[in-house]
Design a protein around this nucleic acid. Structure first.
Length: 114
DNA sequence: TTGCTGACCGACG
DNA sequence: CCGTCGGCCAGCA
């Protein structure tokens, strides 16, 4: 038994779960999700989880997750194009120079909303 | 199995 | 103001 559980209550799964809860036209930051999970210092894992998000069967709106500066830090991982920006603008979010405009306005806080 | 890296954040000088 | 470093956890070679 050294192994475990079939139940995947790993840090990653929680990140994906929260990411899926992000409403349309809203964005959040890695630190916000990490803090919501109770590990404020593990913001890196949130970003890493997004990288592994493609391994999940659920579609994870990683394009709605940006760094605390509102900058599309992970846009290079979406396919090498401005797809991330296009998706955000498609949802009504204004993005310029890889940076979200009115970030505070479209910012979605999981701790506050949930 | 061990070790390194990674889409961040905050603090320090 | 800007550059540098540490910390957090999990996947991958």
């Amino acid at each position: 038994m050294t192994k475990t559980p079939k139940k995947e209550d790993s840090f990653f799964d929680r990140v994906f779960e929260v990411a899926r809860l992000i409403p349309y036209g809203r964005v959040t930051s890695y630190g916000a999700i990490a803090e919501y999970l109770g590990s404020k210092g593990s913001a890196r894992m949130v970003g890493w989880a997004m990288n592994s998000s493609h391994t999940q069967k659920f579609q994870v709106p990683a394009h709605r997750v940006v760094n605390k500066s509102g900058c599309l830090s992970g846009k290079h991982h979406f396919g090498g194009s401005d797809i991330m920006q296009q998706l955000l603008e498609n949802e009504g979010v204004t993005v310029e120079d890889d940076q979200i405009q009115d970030f505070q306005k479209v910012f979605w806080n999981p701790m506050k909303e949930l």
